[in-house]
Simulated assay, not measured.
Amino acid sequence: MSAPPQEEHAIEPEAPYRVERLPRDLDRKQFACGRDPLDTYFHQQVGQDVDRGYCACFIAIHVESGQIAGYYTLAPYSVAVNEVPLSLARRLPRYNSVPCVLMGRLAVATDHKGQGLGAALLVDAWGRARGNEIGGFALIVDAKDEEAKVFYERYGFCQCEPGSLRLFLSLRKGTGPAKT
């Protein structure tokens, strides 16, 4: 039995962006966020990763211009229970690891920065991770640097370990990205 198709949707009513799965034939070369690893990945690698089933990629399209304004990737993942803060690990099953969803990359095009799109994509990613049919304990991110870490922490992400750039946000009912 196949999963229901995930339709495109506006991030919020009357939003200037819509979010959809990355189409196979889309020209990605015009996208630029200003961070070489994120740009290179989107231009050269993401299509192969999606084709191989390693991740799903979602893009934000600026409705008026049709430009790719941002993207993120989601993939199944697991985290060792000893990487989860003790206060949460006590409530988890006695397994060596717990299933999670990894948001491997999140990028906003330079022309669209400062408009709240990064936060909107983060909320969209959390919603998709929360709504997936296989479950998971948390949405995990590996912040690329301290600036990215601060961004995620503003939305309620917590460090897996002190000093780490790996952060998580619970997918449990009643939780979600904090509004800032």
Rank of each mutant, 00 (worst) to 15 (best):
S87W: 04
N82V: 11
D111F: 03
V108P: 05
E133I: 06
D111C: 03
D124E: 14
R105L: 02
A138Y: 01
Y95N: 13
G127A: 09
V84C: 04
V141F: 08
V123Q: 13
K113M: 11
E153K: 15
S97Q: 10
F151M: 04
Q115G: 00
Y155G: 02
F151E: 07
A143S: 13
A109H: 13
R128C: 05
F157M: 15
H112K: 06
E147R: 14
P76K: 05
S97C: 07
P85G: 01
W126G: 04
E147T: 12
Y155F: 15
K113I: 06
V123H: 12
V98I: 15
A129D: 09
A129S: 11
N132Y: 01
F157H: 07
Y95Q: 12
K149M: 14
E147V: 13
F151R: 00
C158W: 04
Y77I: 06
G135V: 02
N132M: 08
A109N: 07
D111P: 04
G116M: 11
I140V: 14
G156I: 06
F151D: 03
V98Q: 12
A143W: 07
S87F: 05
P76G: 08
L88N: 06
V141K: 09
R90D: 08
D111Q: 05
D111A: 10
L121C: 06
A143Y: 09
L117G: 09
F157I: 08
R90H: 12
R90I: 09
R154K: 15
N96T: 09
P93D: 11
P162V: 05
G135P: 05
D124L: 05
L86Q: 13
K144I: 15
S87M: 09
M103V: 00
L102Q: 06
D145M: 10
E161K: 15
F137Q: 07
T110G: 00
I134D: 10
V123S: 10
A138W: 04
S87H: 06
S97M: 05
D145A: 08
A148V: 10
V150I: 12
K149W: 00
V79E: 15
Y77N: 15
T110L: 14
I134R: 13
R154L: 08
H112S: 05
P99D: 12
P85C: 00
L88G: 01
D145C: 08
R128Y: 09
S78D: 11
L88V: 01
C160R: 10
R94S: 13
E161F: 05
C160Y: 02
E147M: 07
Y155V: 07
Y95F: 14
P93N: 10
R128W: 05
L106E: 01
V81W: 06
G131L: 08
V141C: 09
D145F: 11
R154S: 04
N82H: 14
N82F: 11
G127P: 02
G104Q: 06
V108D: 04
R94K: 15
S87K: 14
V101G: 00
R128P: 00
K149V: 03
I134L: 14
L106C: 03
G127V: 00
G104H: 07
N132D: 14
L106I: 12
